[in-house]
C-alpha cells in the first residue's frame, strides 16, 4: 500500500506565547510534530506493517523541519519529503498549502493519505479535507479507528463525542483524532536507521508552481494576546459556608445561575 502522511512542525504544547514586532516570538521555542499528526504517523506505520507497502511523510516548511521528519522516520516511516518554502513564500494560508500538496500528489497514486485533524498552532483543520477534494479522494475526518480490507475501509470517527461507524473505499484521506492510537517513541536503533533513510527536499519550482499560483486568499492583519486573566477570589471558612457563598456569588455577581 502506498501510504502518505501530512505532517506539520508546531510549537511544543508547553510553550508560552509571546509577541514581538507583531509576530509570534519563536526565538528559542521548542518544536514537536503536531500531536494529531503523530497519531497519523503511528497509524500509517501500523497499516504498513499489516498490509505491506511504504510510508512517506510529507511536510511543507523550512530547513529546520527536517528534525521532525527524522523523528517520523525514526518512528518507522520509510521516506520523507520536505517541501521547503523558506526562500519562496513569505505568506501562505490553507489555500497555499493545499495548492502545493495538490501539485506534489499529482503523480503519486496514493492509496491512503493520513493527516492530523487539526494543527495545534493555527488550528484551521482545513488542509486534509481541502486536499481530498482536490485529489478526488473520499475523506473521513476525526477518525479513532481504521480497518482496511482490500479496497474497503471500515472506520470509526468521533463526532462531538458520539462514535460514527463508516464504510468507505480507497483511495482515501483520513484525519486523525485523539484515541486512534498511542504513538510510539523512536527507539535508539530507529534513530540510527532514520539518519540513512531518504529525505527528499523540494521547492515549489520543482512542482511547477510559482508564487502567484499559491497566493493566499486570506491575510492576518493583527496578532494579539488575550487579556491576562486575573486570579479571582479564593473563598474561606467552613465548606458549607463556602458553598453557600459560591452559589450566591454565581447568582448575584457573576450572574451565571
Amino acid at each position: 500500500m502506498n501510504i502518505y502522511v501530512l505532517l506539520k512542525r508546531t510549537f511544543d504544547t508547553e510553550e508560552k506565547i509571546a509577541i514581538s514586532n507583531g509576530r509570534i516570538e519563536d526565538d528559542g521555542a521548542e518544536y514537536i510534530i503536531n500531536p494529531y499528526d503523530e497519531y497519523a504517523v503511528e497509524e500509517a506505520i501500523n497499516l504498513r506493517d499489516e498490509h505491506g507497502g511504504e510510508v512517506t511523510v510529507v511536510t511543507i516548511g523550512e530547513e529546520d523541519s527536517e528534525k521532525q521528519l527524522r523523528t517520523a522516520l525514526a518512528m518507522g516511516a520509510d521516506k520523507a519529503v520536505l517541501i521547503n518554502t523558506e526562500d519562496d513564500l513569505e505568506e501562505g494560508d490553507q489555500f497555499t498549502t493545499v495548492k502545493i500538496l495538490e501539485a506534489f500528489f499529482e503523480d503519486k497514486e496514493a492509496d491512503i493519505v493520513l493527516a492530523g485533524n487539526v494543527a495545534i498552532d493555527e488550528a484551521s483543520g482545513q488542509v486534509g479535507p481541502r486536499l481530498a477534494e482536490r485529489l478526488g479522494m473520499s475523506c473521513v475526518t476525526t477518525i479513532t479507528s481504521i480497518k482496511v480490507d482490500g479496497e474497503k475501509a471500515n472506520i470509526e470517527r468521533d463526532v462531538e463525542g458520539d462514535v460514527e461507524k463508516v464504510e468507505t473505499s480507497l483511495p482515501l484521506l483520513v484525519t486523525c483524532q485523539q484515541g486512534l492510537n498511542e504513538p510510539r517513541y523512536p527507539s535508539l536503533p530507529g534513530i540510527m536507521k532514520a539518519k540513512k533513510k531518504p529525505l527528499e527536499e523540494l521547492e515549489i519550482d520543482d512542482l511547477d508552481l510559482d508564487e502567484d499560483d499559491v497566493e493566499p486568499k486570506t491575510k492576518t492583519i493583527e496578532i494579539f494576546l488575550p487579556p491576562e486573566k486575573q486570579a479571582g477570589k479564593v473563598l474561606e471558612g467552613e465548606t458549607d459556608d463556602q458553598v453557600k457563598e459560591l452559589v450566591s456569588l454565581l447568582k448575584t455577581e457573576a450572574k451565571v445561575l
Binding site: 510549537f11 509570534i24 486568499k217 486570506t218 491575510k219 492576518t220 493583527e222 496578532i223 494579539f224 488575550p226
Partner: peptide, 15 residues
C-alpha cells in the same frame, strides 16, 4: 484563536 487560545489573530479575506 490560535495556539488554542493562547493568542488571537485578526484575519480578513483578500480574494
Amino acid at each position: 484563536p490560535i495556539y488554542s487560545g493562547k493568542a488571537f489573530e485578526k484575519k480578513e479575506i483578500t480574494d
